[in-house]
């Protein structure tokens, strides 16, 4: 395994994303692919998008559900980068033809107004640096065929990110315990799944603190202005053309998206 392998993987992911044709797991060809190497592939994959005009506007945290970490046999979350090209406005429409095998989940999005640059970032730092939170829908997608991912595969694939939608109501974290806010996702107006904030790494605030420290270990600082999708709060739903999906969250409000062919 050398740098050219990592470059090749980044090229293949970029091509799979452009062509909407999924690829075999990277780890099928390179079982020893480490987490560090996978993040290097992710950076290479994103640099290709940035070269073509995309801008990083935030981060997403994945694998925040203990059940999913247990299934993948990993003990910590992972992260990917949010690009401006992934954003859709609340109530907007996403063409399924622009994605491969999307799934939708409800999350809490943090918007920072201070850098999280402490040597070790605690929950207190996250609370102090968060301007407000908004409800969010993340449309995850995988460039890996049939979602047959291991930890290294999803990290390389930008943490299986696709698109995201932010709600239009801002809520500050003063006196708010995100762990005990309930949420419901409706699929075509029918209740699909419910969850609560604690489903995300015990507390979405802890999830963001984990991200800040993970990034510090890689020499990156979470900056004021970034939007951070803190992790899914319930099982995903799978959209079809003509569907709409709404998340309602206690206190935070709601957010919705439509899907076309």
């Amino acid at each position: 395994m050398d740098a050219s392998d990592l470059t090749r993987f980044a090229d293949e992911l970029f091509r799979a994303d452009i062509d909407r044709i999924p690829m075999d797991p990277l780890t099928a060809r390179m079982p020893g692919l480490t987490t560090e190497q996978a993040y290097a592939v992710q950076i290479g994959y994103l640099e290709k998008k940035i070269t073509r005009g995309a801008h990083v506007i935030g981060k997403k945290i994945g694998l925040t559900s203990k059940a999913i970490r247990d299934a993948l046999k990993v003990d910590e979350p992972d992260f990917g980068c949010l690009l401006d090209t992934m954003a859709v406005l609340d109530g907007g429409t996403i063409a399924l033809s622009t994605l491969i095998q999307p799934r939708v989940e409800g999350e809490i999005c943090f918007v920072l107004d201070r850098d999280l640059d402490a040597p070790f970032v605690t929950e207190a730092d996250v609370l102090r640096s968060t301007a407000f939170v908004v409800p969010a829908l993340e449309i995850i997608d995988s460039r890996i065929r049939d979602w047959k991912i291991t930890l290294a595969d999803t990290i390389a694939d930008n943490a299986s990110s696709g698109m995201f939608v932010l709600g239009g109501k801002k809520t500050t974290l003063d006196n708010l315990d995100l762990r005990l806010l309930g949420m419901a996702v409706d699929h075509n107006g029918q209740l699909a799944v419910t969850g609560a904030g604690a489903a995300c790494f015990g507390n979405p605030v802890t999830s963001v603190a984990w991200l800040a420290n993970k990034l510090r270990s890689l020499g990156i600082v979470l900056r004021a202005g970034e939007v951070i999708l803190s992790g899914g709060l319930a099982a995903t739903v799978t959209p079809k053309a003509g569907d709409w999906v709404t998340m309602r969250m206690q206190t935070l409000g709601d957010v919705s998206v439509r899907f076309s062919a």
């Binding site: 309930g182 949420m183 419901a184 209740l191 419910t194 969850g195 609560a196 904030g197 489903a199 206690q250």
Partner: peptide
């Protein structure tokens, strides 16, 4: 001590 389930009362028929 481990969180094993989360949800909201909407789960019962809305």
């Amino acid at each position: 001590g481990d969180i094993v389930q989360t949800g909201a009362p909407a789960a019962v028929l809305g």
